[in-house]
Amino acid sequence: MEIKFSIRRHDPMDGENPGPYYREYIVDAEEGMTVLEALLKISEEEDPTLAFRRSCRSAICGSCAMTVNGFARLTCSLQVIPEYQKMGAMRIEPLSNHRTIKDLVVDMAPFWEKMEKVAPFLMPAGGSEGNPVSIEDQAGIDESQRCIMCGCCNAECNSLEIDERFIAPAASAKAWRFVGDVREGHRGKRLERLSEEHGIWDCVRCIHCTQYCPKDVKPLKQIESLRSAAMKEGVLDNPGARHVEAMADSVERFGRLDEAAMTFRTLGFLRSVGMIPLGLRLEKHGKMPHPYIFPQIMEIDEVRAVYDEIEKKYGLKPKKEG
Protein backbone atom coordinates (compact mmCIF):
# COMPACT_ATOMS: atom_id res chain seq x y z
CA MET A 1 0.00 0.00 0.00
CA GLU A 2 1.50 3.34 -1.05
CA ILE A 3 1.32 5.94 1.66
CA LYS A 4 2.33 9.57 1.53
CA PHE A 5 4.51 10.70 4.43
CA SER A 6 4.73 14.38 5.13
CA ILE A 7 7.81 15.06 7.23
CA ARG A 8 8.85 18.26 8.92
CA ARG A 9 12.37 19.20 7.91
CA HIS A 10 14.29 21.79 9.88
CA ASP A 11 17.98 22.53 10.24
CA PRO A 12 18.35 25.72 12.27
CA MET A 13 22.09 25.80 11.53
CA ASP A 14 21.64 25.63 7.77
CA GLY A 15 22.43 29.12 6.46
CA GLU A 16 20.65 28.67 3.14
CA ASN A 17 17.56 26.62 3.74
CA PRO A 18 16.89 26.16 7.42
CA GLY A 19 13.15 25.57 7.16
CA PRO A 20 11.02 24.41 8.76
CA TYR A 21 9.22 23.03 5.75
CA TYR A 22 7.39 19.80 5.01
CA ARG A 23 8.70 17.30 2.54
CA GLU A 24 6.69 14.47 1.09
CA TYR A 25 7.84 10.92 0.52
CA ILE A 26 5.89 7.98 -0.85
CA VAL A 27 6.47 4.75 1.04
CA ASP A 28 5.31 1.35 -0.11
CA ALA A 29 4.12 0.06 3.26
CA GLU A 30 3.82 -3.65 3.83
CA GLU A 31 1.63 -5.28 6.43
CA GLY A 32 3.09 -4.82 9.91
CA MET A 33 5.58 -2.10 8.93
CA THR A 34 6.19 0.37 11.73
CA VAL A 35 6.57 4.11 11.33
CA LEU A 36 10.22 3.79 12.34
CA GLU A 37 10.77 1.16 9.64
CA ALA A 38 9.19 3.51 7.12
CA LEU A 39 11.53 6.32 8.18
CA LEU A 40 14.49 3.95 7.87
CA LYS A 41 13.32 3.02 4.40
CA ILE A 42 13.08 6.67 3.44
CA SER A 43 16.50 7.53 4.79
CA GLU A 44 18.22 4.43 3.44
CA GLU A 45 16.67 4.33 -0.01
CA GLU A 46 15.67 7.85 -0.82
CA ASP A 47 16.94 10.65 1.38
CA PRO A 48 19.83 9.95 3.77
CA THR A 49 19.81 13.54 4.98
CA LEU A 50 16.69 12.93 7.08
CA ALA A 51 17.75 12.96 10.74
CA PHE A 52 16.03 10.96 13.49
CA ARG A 53 17.06 8.84 16.48
CA ARG A 54 16.64 5.08 16.74
CA SER A 55 18.21 2.09 18.33
CA CYS A 56 16.37 -0.92 19.77
CA ARG A 57 13.39 -0.90 17.32
CA SER A 58 11.48 -2.87 19.99
CA ALA A 59 9.90 -0.21 22.19
CA ILE A 60 12.36 -0.42 25.07
CA CYS A 61 15.22 2.08 24.54
CA GLY A 62 13.10 5.22 24.25
CA SER A 63 14.99 6.74 21.29
CA CYS A 64 12.32 7.06 18.65
CA ALA A 65 9.50 9.24 20.05
CA MET A 66 8.11 11.77 17.57
CA THR A 67 4.89 13.58 16.84
CA VAL A 68 2.78 11.50 14.49
CA ASN A 69 -0.40 13.07 13.16
CA GLY A 70 -0.33 15.56 16.00
CA PHE A 71 0.38 13.27 18.94
CA ALA A 72 3.53 12.04 20.67
CA ARG A 73 4.13 8.43 19.69
CA LEU A 74 6.83 5.80 19.95
CA THR A 75 7.41 5.26 16.26
CA CYS A 76 8.92 1.78 16.49
CA SER A 77 5.78 0.32 17.97
CA LEU A 78 3.31 2.20 15.82
CA GLN A 79 2.17 0.42 12.67
CA VAL A 80 1.86 2.47 9.52
CA ILE A 81 -1.23 1.01 7.88
CA PRO A 82 -3.66 1.09 10.82
CA GLU A 83 -2.46 4.58 11.79
CA TYR A 84 -2.94 5.80 8.25
CA GLN A 85 -6.35 4.23 7.98
CA LYS A 86 -7.44 5.81 11.25
CA MET A 87 -6.04 9.29 10.71
CA GLY A 88 -6.13 9.57 6.92
CA ALA A 89 -2.63 11.08 6.92
CA MET A 90 0.94 10.43 7.93
CA ARG A 91 2.46 13.61 9.20
CA ILE A 92 5.73 13.25 11.13
CA GLU A 93 7.10 16.06 13.27
CA PRO A 94 9.57 16.31 16.13
CA LEU A 95 8.31 16.04 19.71
CA SER A 96 6.62 19.21 20.94
CA ASN A 97 7.80 21.13 23.98
CA HIS A 98 11.40 20.46 22.92
CA ARG A 99 13.77 22.48 20.73
CA THR A 100 14.52 20.96 17.33
CA ILE A 101 18.17 20.20 16.66
CA LYS A 102 17.64 18.79 13.20
CA ASP A 103 14.53 17.41 11.52
CA LEU A 104 13.07 14.88 13.95
CA VAL A 105 15.91 15.09 16.47
CA VAL A 106 15.09 17.27 19.47
CA ASP A 107 17.25 18.59 22.26
CA MET A 108 16.71 16.19 25.14
CA ALA A 109 19.06 18.02 27.52
CA PRO A 110 16.21 19.66 29.47
CA PHE A 111 14.58 16.25 29.82
CA TRP A 112 17.72 14.76 31.39
CA GLU A 113 18.23 17.83 33.56
CA LYS A 114 14.77 17.43 35.01
CA MET A 115 15.57 13.78 35.74
CA GLU A 116 18.73 14.79 37.55
CA LYS A 117 16.79 17.36 39.57
CA VAL A 118 14.78 14.66 41.33
CA ALA A 119 17.97 12.85 42.48
CA PRO A 120 16.95 9.73 40.61
CA PHE A 121 18.68 7.12 42.73
CA LEU A 122 17.87 5.23 45.86
CA MET A 123 19.16 6.78 49.08
CA PRO A 124 18.53 3.84 51.36
CA ALA A 125 17.64 4.30 54.97
CA GLY A 126 20.26 2.91 57.34
CA GLY A 127 19.68 -0.76 57.97
CA SER A 128 17.61 -1.27 54.83
CA GLU A 129 20.34 -3.38 53.19
CA GLY A 130 19.13 -6.83 52.40
CA ASN A 131 15.66 -5.63 53.18
CA PRO A 132 13.68 -7.22 50.41
CA VAL A 133 11.03 -5.36 48.50
CA SER A 134 8.05 -7.66 48.82
CA ILE A 135 5.72 -8.37 45.94
CA GLU A 136 3.15 -6.01 47.47
CA ASP A 137 5.69 -3.24 48.08
CA GLN A 138 6.86 -3.51 44.53
CA ALA A 139 3.37 -3.29 43.11
CA GLY A 140 3.08 0.30 44.32
CA ILE A 141 6.06 1.47 42.26
CA ASP A 142 5.98 -1.00 39.40
CA GLU A 143 4.32 1.37 36.96
CA SER A 144 6.92 4.04 37.60
CA GLN A 145 9.65 1.46 37.00
CA ARG A 146 8.45 0.84 33.46
CA CYS A 147 9.52 4.24 32.15
CA ILE A 148 11.82 4.14 29.11
CA MET A 149 12.50 7.90 29.17
CA CYS A 150 11.10 8.47 25.71
CA GLY A 151 9.73 11.93 26.45
CA CYS A 152 6.22 11.44 24.99
CA CYS A 153 4.63 12.60 28.23
CA ASN A 154 6.68 15.77 28.52
CA ALA A 155 5.98 16.54 24.88
CA GLU A 156 2.24 16.54 25.52
CA CYS A 157 2.31 18.21 28.95
CA ASN A 158 0.21 21.37 29.17
CA SER A 159 1.99 22.73 32.21
CA LEU A 160 5.40 22.26 30.64
CA GLU A 161 4.19 24.14 27.60
CA ILE A 162 3.64 27.30 29.64
CA ASP A 163 6.46 26.82 32.15
CA GLU A 164 9.65 25.27 30.88
CA ARG A 165 10.93 24.98 34.42
CA PHE A 166 8.07 22.67 35.43
CA ILE A 167 9.46 19.37 36.67
CA ALA A 168 7.09 17.66 34.23
CA PRO A 169 5.62 14.15 34.24
CA ALA A 170 8.60 11.92 33.38
CA ALA A 171 10.79 13.12 36.24
CA SER A 172 7.80 13.14 38.59
CA ALA A 173 7.09 9.49 37.84
CA LYS A 174 10.76 8.78 38.47
CA ALA A 175 10.56 10.63 41.77
CA TRP A 176 7.71 8.40 42.87
CA ARG A 177 9.88 5.39 41.99
CA PHE A 178 12.03 6.39 45.01
CA VAL A 179 9.54 8.07 47.30
CA GLY A 180 7.40 4.97 47.01
CA ASP A 181 10.28 2.55 47.65
CA VAL A 182 10.11 1.06 51.14
CA ARG A 183 13.89 1.23 51.43
CA GLU A 184 14.14 4.96 50.74
CA GLY A 185 15.57 7.04 53.57
CA HIS A 186 14.93 10.61 52.40
CA ARG A 187 11.23 10.60 51.65
CA GLY A 188 10.51 13.82 53.52
CA LYS A 189 13.33 15.83 51.93
CA ARG A 190 12.38 14.63 48.51
CA LEU A 191 8.75 15.57 49.02
CA GLU A 192 9.70 19.01 50.28
CA ARG A 193 11.76 19.69 47.19
CA LEU A 194 9.12 18.28 44.89
CA SER A 195 6.55 20.59 46.48
CA GLU A 196 8.50 23.72 45.64
CA GLU A 197 7.56 26.04 42.82
CA HIS A 198 7.62 24.35 39.38
CA GLY A 199 7.12 21.07 41.22
CA ILE A 200 4.38 18.50 41.48
CA TRP A 201 1.69 21.03 42.45
CA ASP A 202 2.11 22.85 39.15
CA CYS A 203 0.56 20.00 37.21
CA VAL A 204 -2.86 21.02 35.91
CA ARG A 205 -4.02 17.41 35.72
CA CYS A 206 -4.80 17.42 32.03
CA ILE A 207 -3.97 13.69 32.02
CA HIS A 208 -2.13 13.92 28.69
CA CYS A 209 0.98 12.30 30.16
CA THR A 210 -0.93 9.18 31.12
CA GLN A 211 -2.78 9.16 27.84
CA TYR A 212 0.33 9.34 25.64
CA CYS A 213 2.74 7.20 27.63
CA PRO A 214 3.58 4.13 25.52
CA LYS A 215 4.58 2.10 28.57
CA ASP A 216 1.60 2.67 30.80
CA VAL A 217 3.63 4.48 33.45
CA LYS A 218 0.65 6.70 34.28
CA PRO A 219 2.68 9.73 35.36
CA LEU A 220 -0.36 11.65 36.58
CA LYS A 221 -1.22 8.82 38.94
CA GLN A 222 2.34 8.94 40.30
CA ILE A 223 2.08 12.71 40.71
CA GLU A 224 -1.09 12.21 42.72
CA SER A 225 0.67 9.63 44.86
CA LEU A 226 3.44 12.14 45.47
CA ARG A 227 0.96 14.85 46.39
CA SER A 228 -0.87 12.76 48.92
CA ALA A 229 2.43 11.45 50.29
CA ALA A 230 3.59 15.05 50.68
CA MET A 231 0.46 16.03 52.57
CA LYS A 232 0.67 12.98 54.80
CA GLU A 233 4.28 13.79 55.48
CA GLY A 234 3.15 17.26 56.58
CA VAL A 235 4.68 19.17 53.69
CA LEU A 236 1.94 21.76 53.65
CA ASP A 237 3.63 25.09 53.28
CA ASN A 238 3.12 25.56 49.57
CA PRO A 239 0.30 26.79 47.36
CA GLY A 240 -0.57 23.33 46.07
CA ALA A 241 -1.03 21.74 49.46
CA ARG A 242 -2.83 24.82 50.77
CA HIS A 243 -5.13 24.62 47.78
CA VAL A 244 -6.03 21.02 48.58
CA GLU A 245 -6.53 21.87 52.24
CA ALA A 246 -8.69 24.82 51.37
CA MET A 247 -10.71 22.67 49.03
CA ALA A 248 -11.21 19.98 51.65
CA ASP A 249 -12.15 22.57 54.29
CA SER A 250 -14.52 24.36 52.00
CA VAL A 251 -16.37 21.18 51.13
CA GLU A 252 -16.47 20.14 54.77
CA ARG A 253 -17.88 23.50 55.85
CA PHE A 254 -20.20 24.40 53.01
CA GLY A 255 -20.59 21.16 51.06
CA ARG A 256 -19.27 23.04 48.03
CA LEU A 257 -16.22 24.90 46.79
CA ASP A 258 -15.84 28.50 47.85
CA GLU A 259 -13.47 29.37 45.04
CA ALA A 260 -12.81 32.97 45.93
CA ALA A 261 -11.91 32.09 49.49
CA MET A 262 -9.77 29.25 48.20
CA THR A 263 -7.68 31.58 46.06
CA PHE A 264 -7.08 33.66 49.14
CA ARG A 265 -5.99 30.71 51.23
CA THR A 266 -3.93 29.13 48.48
CA LEU A 267 -1.96 32.19 47.54
CA GLY A 268 -2.11 34.28 50.70
CA PHE A 269 -3.25 37.90 50.90
CA LEU A 270 -0.61 39.68 48.81
CA ARG A 271 -0.61 37.31 45.90
CA SER A 272 -4.41 37.13 45.96
CA VAL A 273 -4.49 40.85 45.45
CA GLY A 274 -2.56 40.16 42.28
CA MET A 275 -5.47 38.03 41.18
CA ILE A 276 -7.90 40.95 41.29
CA PRO A 277 -7.53 41.81 37.57
CA LEU A 278 -8.29 38.18 36.75
CA GLY A 279 -11.25 38.36 39.10
CA LEU A 280 -12.52 41.44 37.33
CA ARG A 281 -12.22 39.77 33.97
CA LEU A 282 -14.00 36.68 35.29
CA GLU A 283 -16.72 38.91 36.70
CA LYS A 284 -17.13 40.66 33.35
CA HIS A 285 -17.74 37.34 31.64
CA GLY A 286 -20.09 36.14 34.35
CA LYS A 287 -17.63 33.49 35.53
CA MET A 288 -16.74 34.84 38.94
CA PRO A 289 -17.87 32.47 41.65
CA HIS A 290 -20.28 34.02 44.15
CA PRO A 291 -19.75 32.28 47.46
CA TYR A 292 -22.31 34.40 49.29
CA ILE A 293 -25.29 33.14 47.32
CA PHE A 294 -25.52 29.59 48.72
CA PRO A 295 -23.08 29.49 51.60
CA GLN A 296 -24.00 26.00 52.60
CA ILE A 297 -25.77 23.16 50.90
CA MET A 298 -28.79 21.56 52.55
CA GLU A 299 -27.31 18.09 53.03
CA ILE A 300 -24.16 19.26 54.76
CA ASP A 301 -24.49 16.61 57.45
CA GLU A 302 -24.15 13.86 54.91
CA VAL A 303 -20.98 15.43 53.56
CA ARG A 304 -19.54 15.66 57.06
CA ALA A 305 -20.43 12.04 57.71
CA VAL A 306 -18.37 11.13 54.62
CA TYR A 307 -15.46 13.13 56.01
CA ASP A 308 -15.65 11.40 59.37
CA GLU A 309 -15.73 8.04 57.71
CA ILE A 310 -12.64 8.84 55.62
CA GLU A 311 -10.86 10.16 58.67
CA LYS A 312 -11.64 7.00 60.62
CA LYS A 313 -10.69 4.66 57.83
CA TYR A 314 -7.60 6.25 56.34
CA GLY A 315 -6.65 9.12 58.63
CA LEU A 316 -6.03 11.03 55.43
CA LYS A 317 -6.70 14.50 56.69
CA PRO A 318 -3.40 16.31 56.65
CA LYS A 319 -1.80 16.83 60.02
CA LYS A 320 -1.36 20.49 60.77
CA GLU A 321 2.06 21.43 61.93
CA GLY A 322 2.59 22.57 65.51
Partner: peptide, 11 residues
Protein backbone atom coordinates in the same frame (compact mmCIF):
# COMPACT_ATOMS: atom_id res chain seq x y z
CA UNK B 1 27.10 6.97 20.77
CA UNK B 2 23.61 6.62 22.22
CA UNK B 3 22.39 8.08 25.50
CA UNK B 4 23.21 5.58 28.30
CA UNK B 5 19.66 4.30 28.86
CA UNK B 6 19.37 3.65 25.10
CA UNK B 7 22.20 1.08 25.18
CA UNK B 8 21.18 -2.36 24.08
CA UNK B 9 21.52 -3.92 27.52
CA UNK B 10 18.11 -2.33 28.01
CA UNK B 11 16.57 -5.01 25.78
Amino acid sequence: KVYPVRSHSVA
